[in-house]
Design a binder for these strands. Structure first.
Length: 579
RNA sequence: GCCGGUGUAGCUCAGUGGCAGAGCAAUCCCCUCGUAAGGGAUAGGUCAGGAGUUCAAGUCUCCUCACCGGCUCCA
């Protein structure tokens, strides 16, 4: 299945490889596929190259394109192919992996010949609108144990307009980067050098957004039959031994703290054992089920230095976690209601498109095959019941159970993993959890682990990029800025601010001695949804001249009306004015 | 962890071996102002950290840390 665009991009990767072969000696070729956004080709090069070299390579590509060379396909016998590519170790490996009976084809364009399944464009001059974007290292065949090749990324389109649009979209994504907005809007900071990589400092403005998210989360959980619990951040290592974390999750855990003579404590990488401690504190009856315990639980995981990324990938983060204890017969119903609950909550934040994945048993796991089968079946049934389309991600489950991951699509059509639902028969077994069944016997409950936002840090980052920092009113760190025109209007503005703050709004006053135009410019830079200007006229009438971000002047209203309107809009949790 | 790049004032960045710079922000002064940046002055630096080469290092070399683009891994 090759679309025309994939054909174009794959052909572009050939032209790029062709150019690289012309410019460097002794190049070993890896693979050069098309991707969602463009294409790449992996090379083993005799020397280091940097982004500077991309211009040269692109220049050579222009020449090859202008050369108008046809792409010609040729089918070879396997032994002939092996002979022809004897100096290309990676190609040899690929040839040897082609199953018997499948054809071995080679594409030729000018003096460049490459092992390739095709298909291709007709000629090199079809590749006109391309751009080489960046360079990266990539393991051969994606395995850490293989040598690292140099990957050159590029993109190509049929028309110049499409290429420009694409490059503009990349620029837009850069503008919306949560790390950039985090600085500009004073939301958070990370101090890798001074205080530790991957550890987040939430500033006042970021915390304001976070608090709104948390309050909404608490409200919805209480309405949906959850109880909120709280657990400590460290626990003795024997707890993590029992749970299986020390055996199966150790590489992601910070080393144990030796507190007093041989008593080791461990910083929690997950919340589940803590909730299990609460469960085990008393005996439970089937009549209590389902028990739904939720917590914004902060966890710490050791992540390799190279994987850290803003708020998206950190070493300390807060999961909006919940554990549901129930009877096996309640499992389907619980999964279904969790899915509905999740989708409902996400839609409030403007996320209505998802991709859903069902991840199955990984290599490193606890528990029996039978338990894994049961858990997977339950998840499948839940998905089918609310007819959500999903894909299977083989071997991607957690060590204690399979999971459903919901990836949300943001306003730039990018996917982000947030929500997760995991069915677990294994940890209850390890901790010997019990409940009294209707017939008086002791049975083992099933446990569901689930998170809607996944990590608050990541969700906040996704939200920031989704809205490009222009948060809808209910989330905005500063909902309104009141701007006095001159010093004599300060009192009026300060009193109004105090009144609005008492009503629960987040409001600031700009008391700098600047001109109105500059104050408006500053407020716009901070992406504050509403500005309220007050001068002589407004003070005399008890009104405000209102400006709306992105829309400009919105007329004069009484300060009471302004306050009421803001309260109403914030309470609606609507994002319609933003997107 | 791996490949490549980067690290200079609070922020954005210039400075390729010879006196450490600009704009914005900050502070002070002038202007007292009506809807997208008024003017002036002042202050602000262990040039990420350490070692080395050199008469001389922000600049060259090595090590460490962090950050950026990817790979592997992942909420």
């Amino acid at each position: 299945m090759n679309t025309e665009l994939e054909k174009l991009r794959h052909s572009a990767s050939h032209v790029m490889a062709h150019a690289v072969m012309r410019l460097f000696d002794n190049v070993k070729l890896g693979i050069g596929p098309s991707t969602e956004d463009g294409f790449y080709y992996d090379f083993e090069l005799p020397e280091k190259i940097s982004e500077e070299d991309l211009k040269r390579i692109a220049g050579e590509m222009e020449k090859i394109s202008a050369g108008n060379l046809p792409f010609k396909k040729e089918v070879l016998k396997k032994e002939d192919a092996l002979k022809e590519f004897k100096d290309q170790p990676y190609k040899l490996q690929l040839i040897n992996e082609i199953p018997e009976g499948e054809e071995v084809s080679v594409y030729t364009s000018g003096e460049f010949r490459d092992l390739c399944r095709g298909p291709h464009m007709e000629k090199t001059s079809d590749i006109k609108n391309f751009k080489l974007t960046h360079i990266a290292g990539a393991y051969w065949k994606g395995s850490e144990t293989n040598p690292m090749l140099t990957r050159i990324y590029g993109t190509a389109f049929f028309s110049e307009e499409e290429l420009d649009d694409h490059l503009k979209r990349i620029e837009l994504a850069k503008e919306r980067d949560h790390r950039k907005l985090g600085k500009e809007l004073d939301l958070f900071s990370i101090h890798g050098q001074e205080a530790g990589a991957g550890l987040v400092y939430w500033h006042g403005k970021g915390s304001a957004v976070r608090r709104v998210i948390e309050n909404f989360w608490i409200e919805r959980h209480l309405q949906n039959g959850y109880e909120l619990v709280n657990i400590p951040h460290i626990a003795r290592s024997n707890l993590w031994k029992t749970s299986g974390h020390l055996d199966f999750y150790r590489e992601n855990m910070f080393p144990a703290m030796d507190i007093e003579q041989g008593e080791e404590y461990i910083l929690k990488p997950m919340n589940c054992p803590g909730h299990i401690i609460v469960y085990k504190n008393t005996v439970h009856s089937y009549r209590e089920f389902p028990i739904r315990w939720a917590e914004m639980g902060t966890v710490y995981r050791y992540e390799k230095p190279g994987v850290l990324h803003g708020l998206m990938r950190v070493r300390g983060f807060t999961q909006d976690d919940a554990h549901i204890f129930c009877r096996p017969c309640q499992l389907d119903g619980e999964i279904e209601s969790i899915l509905r609950f999740t989708v409902d909550m996400l839609s409030t934040f403007g996320f209505s498109k998802y991709e859903v994945f069902l991840s199955t048993r990984p290599e490193k796991h606890v528990g029996t095959d039978e338990n894994w089968e049961r858990a997977q079946d339950a998840l499948k049934k839940g998905l089918e019941k609310i007819s959500l389309d999903y894909k299977i991600d083989p071997g991607e489950g957690v060590f204690y159970g399979p999971k459903i991951d919901i990836k949300i699509k943001d306003s730039l059509q990018r996917l982000w993993q947030c929500s997760t639902i995991q069915v677990d028969f294994n940890v209850p077994e390890k901790f010997k959890l019990e409940y009294s069944a209707p017939d008086g016997s002791r049975k083992q409950p099933v446990m569901i682990h689930r998170a809607v936002f996944g990590s608050l840090e990541r969700f906040f980052a996704v939200l920031t990029e989704h809205y490009g920092g222009r948060f809808p009113l209910w989330l905005a760190p500063v909902q309104a800025e009141i701007i006095p025109i001159g010093e004599k209007h300060f009192d009026y503005c300060i009193r109004l601010k105090e009144q609005m703050i008492k009503e629960g709004l987040r409001v600031e006053v700009n008391l700098k001695e600047e001109k109105l135009g500059k104050k408006i410019w500053l407020s716009r830079k901070k992406l504050v949804p509403y500005m309220a200007v007050a001068g002589d006229r407004e003070v005399a009438e008890g009104t405000l001249s209102v400006r709306k971000l992105g829309e400009g002047e919105a007329g004069t209203v009484s300060k009471e009306t302004f306050l009421k309107n803001l309260l109403r809009e914030a309470a609606s949790r609507s994002d319609s004015s933003v997107l």
